[in-house]
């Protein structure tokens, strides 16, 4: 069974059609990149799949189930997590707490009143493991809003990761991360993803990252998918070259 099926998905904002009858399927374990010029509808697509917004037309099926009526919380429970283009983290809380909160919420422990947050050693250990994977361990006691931009991005991805997703949607995970760091960061993300067999969709502008880490590329333009292929064949696709302007 395909983990994600998208059929004829459409979303408009007033006059503007952001996503225009998009269809594709994703198999479990794939790492798919979505590329395209600004305004192509990539982020809207992510928003639709993660249920941040609702579609006008079309069907999205996750693990065979239609998620038309699911909101963000149900989507999370089913196993869809996302990171944000402009990183959203809990600024006035520590990095460690950010992760611990995500884990606590995922394990349905956030409603516990009669125990101490700090006392949960398991959660603390898991949080530390995750922070290590994303190289944020030394900064674990800093407040999230004290982090430089690149680290905040990492934290955002780490939070999504802590939610034990089956499908991970990453919106420009390396934008703002320094060139030197990109490889290391992406390596870590991809390593972890591969180990846990998490299906991933990443929206990216950095072509090096895209070609290095994805096994399949979807090219979007003006709300439509104009190409869906392996990286090699996309490289040789003239239409794509035209649109992406020789990147």
């Amino acid at each position: 069974m395909d983990i994600l099926e998208v059929k004829e998905l459409k979303k408009s904002f007033g006059e503007l059609i952001a996503v225009n009858k998009v269809s594709f399927n994703i198999k479990e374990g794939e790492v798919v990149a979505i590329i395209g010029p600004n305004g192509a509808g990539k982020t809207t697509l992510i928003n639709l799949i993660s249920r941040w917004i609702k579609e006008d037309e079309g069907i999205i099926k996750f693990l065979g189930k239609d998620i038309k009526y699911a909101g963000p919380i149900q989507a999370l429970e089913m196993g869809i997590a996302r990171s944000f283009q402009i990183p959203r983290v809990f600024g006035k809380m520590s990095v460690l707490d950010n992760i611990r909160l995500a884990i606590t919420s995922k394990e349905k422990k956030s409603k516990k009143i009669l125990s101490f947050f700090e006392s949960d050693k398991n959660i603390k250990e898991r949080a530390i493991e995750i922070l290590e994977k994303f190289n944020l361990l030394e900064k674990m006691n800093l407040f999230a809003d004290e982090l430089p931009h690149g680290d905040r991005k990492l934290l955002d991805v780490a939070i999504a990761f802590s939610l034990n997703p089956k499908l991970l949607l990453l919106d420009e995970p390396t934008s703002g991360v320094s060139a030197a760091e990109k490889t290391r960061v992406m390596n870590r993300i991809i390593d972890t993803i591969r180990k846990e067999n998490i299906t991933t969709i990443l929206v990216e502008h950095d072509m090096d990252v895209v070609f290095e880490y994805s096994s399949r590329i979807l090219v979007m333009n003006e709300g439509k998918i104009i190409a869906d292929d392996t990286p090699e064949r996309i490289l040789n696709n003239d239409l794509v070259k035209q649109i992406m302007g020789g990147k």
């Binding site: 996302r82 919420s105 995922k106 422990k109 009143i113 009669l114 939610l163």
Partner: peptide, 21 residues
């Protein structure tokens, strides 16, 4: 408690809180 900590998270960013479930 975890609940109390979650409340704080809601105070800081209630939309993000929704997005961690």
């Amino acid at each position: 408690s975890p609940f109390g900590k979650t409340l704080q998270a809601i105070k800081v960013d209630d939309i993000r809180a929704t997005y961690i479930g």
